Computed example of a mutant assay.
Amino acid sequence: MIRLLRPLLLSVSILLIAASTTVPVQAAEPPERPNAAPFNHPGVLVSKGQLDHMRSQVLAGAQPQTAAYEAMKASASASLDYTPKPRAIVECGSNSIPNNGCTDERNDAIAAYTHALLWYVTKDDRYAKKAIQIMDAWSAVLTDHTNSNAPLQTGWSGASFSRTGELIKYTYSGPWAQRNRFEKMLRDVYLPEIRNGAGCKNGNWELIMMDAAIGIAVFLDDRAAFDKAIGIWRGRVPGYVYQKSDGPLPKAPTTCSLDTREEIVDYWQGQSTFSDGLSQETCRDFGHTGWGLTAAAHVAETAWHQGVNLYGEVRKRLTDGFYFHTRIENGAPVPADLCGGTVKKGLGAVTEVVYNHYHNRLGMPMPTTLRYTEGKRPAGSNYFYAWETLTHADNP
C-alpha cells in the first residue's frame, strides 16, 4: 500500500509546487548537486551552452552579440601583437600607488580572456595560442603580490586568469605545455592571498576576491576552496546589500565584527537611514558599489553552473541592489536622506549577468535594470569584468 501511495503523493507534491510558484516550469532552477559531484567544465562564469549560443549569434550576425564582438575585436586587448608584461613581484599600494605591475597584470589577464573568447568564436588557434602565451609569461615569473592592495589586485587579476584558463583547458585541444605551471601559480600565489576574505575592508574587496577564488577553485577542481568561497560570499552579501527584514541596522559581514550602531553607520559611509537595496558602499560612490554587486553576481553565476543556487538565496537582496542604483543612474531623484542628498554616479556596465539570470532564466520583470543595461551596451572591459554583453546578453 505504501509503495502504491508514493507515486500519488509525489504527483500531488509536484502539482502543489507548480501551482504556488510564479516562475515558468521551463525556468525552474536546477537542484543542488552533491558535494562529491565533479565540477562542470567549462563552468567559470560562462558555460559550454552559453559559449555556443554566443558563437552562433555572432556567426549569424545577431544583436546585441555581434556589436559586442566587434567592439571586443577592435580593442587593444584583442591584438595578436599584444605583448604581456609579467614580473616576479606585483606591488600595489592604495589606489595602486605604487603601481609596480598592477595595471600591467590586470590588462594582461583581461587580454588573455579576450583572446580565449576570440578563439571560441573564430576557432582560429592563433587566439588560443596568444591566450596561452600571456598565461605562460606570468606563470614563468610571478611569485607574489605585495603592499596594501595585494588582496584586491590578486582578486582582479585572478578572476580574469581563472576564466581564461578554464576556457582554454576545456575547449582547446592544442598543446599547452606549461598548463601545470599556470595551475601551480593560481594555487600557490593567487589563492592564498584571497581565500580567507577581506575582513573589514569595503565590501567590494571581499566579493571580488571571492569571484577570483571560486573561479580558481573550479579551474583547479578544488572542492574545499569552492566551498570556502561560497561560505564567505554567503556571509558578505547580506552585509553588503540591506533589506528591511535585516532589522533596523544592516548585518555585519561574517569576516568583520561590528557590534554597535556607531560602528555600522561608520562602516556604511555615514549613512544612518536604510532602505531595501542600499549598499555598504552607496555613499562612497556608485563605481565601487558596481564592482561589489557584479562580483556578487559573478560568484552566483559560477556557482549556478556548478549546480549551487546562490541566486535563489539572495534573489530579492540582489535584484533590489541593482534596482536601487540603476533607478538613480536612470535619472530618478536622489532622496534627501540618502548620502546627504548627493551621490557619485558611475555604476558601470555591470548588469548583464544579473539581468540575464533573473529576467531571461526566471522571467522576472526588471524594466529599470533593462533600461540601464541597454544604455551600456556593448559592455566593454574594466579591471576584472569583460565583454559581458557578448557572453551573457539574452543568453540563459
Rank of each mutant, 00 (worst) to 15 (best):
P7A: 02
L9A: 13
I14P: 05
A18I: 11
A19P: 15
S20F: 11
P24H: 14
Q26G: 00
A27Y: 04
A28N: 12
P31D: 10
E32P: 08
E32S: 14
P34H: 13
L45D: 03
V46C: 05
K48V: 03
K48N: 05
D52L: 10
M54F: 00
V58I: 01
A60L: 05
A62V: 11
Q65S: 12
Y69A: 10
E70N: 14
A74K: 13
A76V: 14
S77I: 02
L80P: 09
R87D: 06
A88N: 04
S94R: 14
N99Y: 00
N99Q: 05
N99W: 00
N100T: 14
G101P: 09
C102Q: 05
D104G: 00
E105G: 04
R106P: 00
N107H: 01
A116M: 04
A116T: 10
L118A: 07
Y120R: 03
T122I: 11
D124H: 01
K129C: 12
Q133R: 06
I134N: 04
D136M: 02
L142E: 15
L142S: 09
L142R: 10
T143W: 01
H145I: 00
N147R: 06
S148W: 02
N149L: 02
P151K: 00
Q153P: 03
G158Y: 01
F161P: 03
T164L: 05
G165W: 03
I168F: 02
I168C: 01
I168L: 05
S173E: 02
G174L: 07
N180E: 15
M185Y: 06
M185H: 08
V189E: 05
E193W: 02
N196Y: 11
N202S: 12
N204Q: 04
E206C: 03
M209K: 09
D211Q: 13
A212C: 04
A213R: 05
I214Y: 10
F219L: 14
F226T: 05
F226A: 06
I230H: 03
I232V: 07
W233I: 00
R234N: 09
Y240W: 04
K244C: 06
S245V: 14
P250V: 09
L258Q: 14
L258M: 12
E262G: 13
V265W: 02
G277Q: 12
L278T: 07
R284H: 14
T294E: 06
T294R: 08
A295F: 05
V299I: 03
A300H: 03
E301M: 13
H305G: 01
V308H: 11
N309T: 12
Y311W: 15
L318K: 04
T319I: 07
D320V: 08
F322G: 06
F322P: 11
E329L: 13
N330R: 15
N330P: 04
G331D: 12
A336C: 11
D337T: 09
L338Y: 11
G340N: 08
G346M: 09
G346Q: 10
G348F: 12
T351S: 12
T351H: 05
E352L: 12
R361V: 13
L362A: 13
L362I: 10
M366D: 10
T369V: 15
T369S: 10
R371C: 08
R371K: 15
T373D: 11
T373F: 08
A379I: 11
Y383W: 11
Y383M: 01
A386T: 07
E388Y: 13
T391M: 09
H392Q: 14
